[in-house]
Every structure is written in C-alpha cells, then in structure tokens.
C-alpha cells in the first residue's frame, strides 16, 4: 500500500468552485495587562478585519514585516487562538456553526518555523509523527508515520527512533512536514517553514513541498518574509501591514506592478542581486509602527509618500483595480471617490 492510499482527507463538499477556506472580517486583539491587579493597559491589534479566500489546490503566500499579523492569522486559521470577531469558513462550513474545532483540525494542519521548539525533545521522531494519528484513533499510526517519514525523505529505519536534537535543521523540518501530513489535511499552513534553513537546504525543502502539493492535492497558505520564496511557491500573494490586508493579487500581476505604496516599498527593499544596480535610496524611512496603537485611517499613512488628509481620517477598502479585477488593493489613490487629491490615478511610477 503506498503512502497515497493511507492519505484520507475529509471529503470535499462544495466542489472545485467553492473556496477551501475563506476568512471574513477576522479580528484578534491581544490585551496587554500590567500592574499588580493585571488591569488592561492597551491592546495589540494583531489582526484587524482581515478577509481573504484560498481556492482549492491554490497556494496563497502571505508576506509582511514583523508585527503585521501574519503569524497570528496562521494560528487563527487552525484555531490555536480564538478569534474575537469574524468568520472562518472551511469548505463551506463556518467554524463554530456546522464545523467544530476538531473538524477544522482534521482539515487544516500547520508547519512551524524550524527550531528546537517545534518538536517535543522527549519523543522519538516516530512518536512525534504518529501522535496526531493516535489522537484521531486511526489504524496503525506507527505504520502511517513510517510511510509518511519515508515520503518526506527520512528513512524510517534510520530515523524512527532518533530524537529531535540528533537531526539537522533540514531533517527536523521534514519531520514537521511529515507530522502535519500524517493527519491527512487538505490545507497546510506553513508559517516561515523554510526561513530558518540554510539556503541550500531551503531549496530541497521547497522542492519537497511542491511535490507533496501535487501528490496529495494540497492547498497551502505559505507565510514568509522572503519575497523570492513566496513568489516561487505561491499562486497569489497577500500583503499585510499592521494587522490589515493592503494588497492581494496573482503573483505575476503583483510582481510586474505593485499597486500599494507599501508593497512597492517592500519589493524595492529586496537586496539587488546585481552589483551594478545596488539600491541607492532606502524605499522607506524608520521602522514599522507598533501595532499597540496603530495609526488612524490608512495605517500606512505615517510612512507613505503619497499620504493626504483623507488617508489620516478614513481607512481605504480593499477593492479590485480597474484593469485587473483580481488584483485587490486598499489605497485611496485607486478609489476615484475617495477624496484624495490624486484619487483614481494610482501610485505614480
């Protein structure tokens, strides 16, 4: 029996046209408590009104800088933290209504950034991979785990009884992938899954992820700060800034033209690979603001070259570009009725 036969994901319900997961108005604020009595002193607006959907078989890349809420979004997606507001709909079923947390976790799994913390140091690799199957009461979890280890390129005879600290970073990340896939998920959320790996190992793991996606018909949400990696693996890219979505677009569309001023800065901040075309001017000054008290209106207005009065007052809505409807951007420059002096013209070249 091959590993593909042991892969038993929850059955599809809505057909290919229905998004595998869609998120509407997702919000998560973390209270900051202080003082002896633990009174609330403020809140980190980690994720604020995020909406997107991921089609079946698609890979959505999420990019953004620290504090933009991409990891919080990942944890919300698999229910590791509870949302304050909003809807998470998995294959047509809303979480908390027709879908329980347990059902959600049968369909969605997560691969974390490689570190010692991703694997229980006391469990052998086999036990770590088999844990989920054991919890779900599947038949012969050990056998399934061995097959999955073999599939991700770890010889079970050699590695089954090893401990995490005996493995290299690349091998540990393969274990993390095997552990997630042993649950037969349909959606895998990869949170900086290759970021800690050395470049040469990163390429091996990316190849593996591409193969697995094809073999098991997986859908990925791929979170990374490395634009090149996201471009390589994703079909669409979602850009976050301080807990909000500023732009979502197909890879080619966003790669050829970044609509939002922040996205443009983020792309220009990539180091050049050509010694004759080194960056001469930093695209943005200063650090991203603190998500504890984010700026009013459009959260990017404090660092935006094109900001005007309206940007400070009103937050822009995410809307399609006129020429390309599947390229969404949240910026007053693209909204003819926004009241921005250059409304409707887009970001100047």
């Amino acid at each position: 029996m091959s590993v593909t036969d042991t892969y038993t994901p929850v059955p599809d319900t809505g057909g290919p046209a229905q998004p595998l997961i869609s998120v509407r108005g997702l919000q998560k604020h973390f209270p900051i408590k202080g003082g002896i009595l633990g009174r609330m002193q403020g809140k980190v607006q980690a994720v604020d009104g995020v909406s997107f959907e991921v089609k079946k078989g698609e890979t959505l890349g999420i990019v953004g800088e620290s504090g933009c809420g991409k990891s919080t979004t990942a944890k919300l997606l698999i229910g590791l933290i509870e949302k304050d507001k909003g809807e998470i709909i998995f294959d047509g079923h809303a979480l908390g209504e027709r879908l329980s947390l347990k059902d959600l976790r049968r369909g969605v799994q997560m691969v974390f950034q490689d570190s010692y913390a991703t694997l229980n140091p006391r469990l052998t690799i086999l036990d770590s991979v088999a844990f989920g199957a054991r919890v779900q009461g599947l038949d012969d979890p050990d056998d399934l785990a061995r097959k999955m280890m073999d599939r991700v390129g770890l010889d079970p005879n050699r590695f089954a009884h090893r401990y995490p600290h005996e493995l290299s970073g690349g091998q540990r990340q393969r274990v993390n992938i095997a552990r997630a896939l042993a649950m037969s998920p349909r959606l895998v959320v990869l949170d900086e899954a290759v970021s800690a790996l050395d470049k040469s190992v990163e390429a091996q793991v990316l190849n593996l992820l591409s193969d697995l996606r094809e073999e098991f018909g997986l859908t990925y949400v791929f979170i990374s700060h490395d634009l090149n990696v996201v471009r390589y693996i994703s079909d669409r890219i979602l850009v976050m800034y301080l807990g909000e979505v500023v732009e979502v677009a197909p890879v080619d569309s966003i790669w050829s033209e970044q609509a939002h001023p922040y996205t443009r800065s983020l792309f220009s901040a990539m180091p050049a690979m050509d010694p004759d075309e080194r960056t001469e001017e930093p695209p943005l000054a200063g650090d991203p603001p603190n998500p504890i008290n984010p700026p009013s209106g459009c959260r990017f207005h404090t660092r935006c070259r094109f900001a005007s009065a309206v940007c400070k007052e009103r937050a822009p809505n995410l809307a399609g570009l006129t020429r390309r409807g599947d390229h969404l951007v949240a910026c007053h420059l693209y909204d003819a009725g926004s009241g921005h002096p250059k409304a409707g013209q887009g970001v100047p070249k």
Binding site: S200, L206, S210, Y232
Partner: peptide, 22 residues
C-alpha cells in the same frame, strides 16, 4: 549552487536545482 538557491530568477513551479545533503 548558492546563487541558484537564492531563487532570484527562478520561474514559479520550476524544479529547483537544490544542492543535495548538508
């Protein structure tokens, strides 16, 4: 190998020329 692994000019979906091993 390192230059190739940087993914600067790799087309989407194209198989990466990864350096094997560690």
């Amino acid at each position: 190998g390192l230059l190739a692994a940087n993914l600067h000019d790799v087309a989407r979906g194209e198989r990466l020329n990864a350096i094997p091993g560690a």
